[in-house]
């Protein structure tokens, strides 16, 4: 069976170290804007595959594997579809090599 793109990315993320702040995602989708085109783009291009388009056309995000690049912030700018903050100090990705 060939792997999907997001499965391949998930495997890559296993190499990384994270400190996840439970119950406080640093990126969230605004529910009434969950079908925005820009979010669908993110389902394709997010380098950590945090975004997924569901069967009903809505996009969901699980930012646990986020690499904090900021691409979704730039892509979704001005659409009102995303709230974006850095994780609280000390949380999120911990690069050993960077």
């Amino acid at each position: 069976m060939t792997q999907t793109q997001s499965q391949k990315i998930e495997e890559k993320l296993y190499q990384n170290r994270y400190r996840v702040e439970e119950g406080k995602p640093h990126i969230t989708i605004v529910p009434e804007k969950a079908t925005a085109q820009e979010l669908k783009m993110m389902a394709a291009i997010c380098p950590a595959a945090c975004y997924e388009e569901t069967e009903n056309g809505k996009v969901e995000i699980i930012p646990d594997g986020c690499l904090e690049c900021g691409t979704c912030r730039v892509v979704c700018q001005g659409t009102g579809s995303l709230t974006w903050n850095y994780p609280s100090g000390g949380y999120g990705i911990l690069f050993k090599f960077g």
Binding site: K12, L13, Q15, P47, C69, G70, V74, K96, G98
Partner: peptide
């Protein structure tokens, strides 16, 4: 052996 994957703008 790959030991880290990163992304950056």
């Amino acid at each position: 052996e790959v030991k880290e994957y990163s992304a950056h703008l």
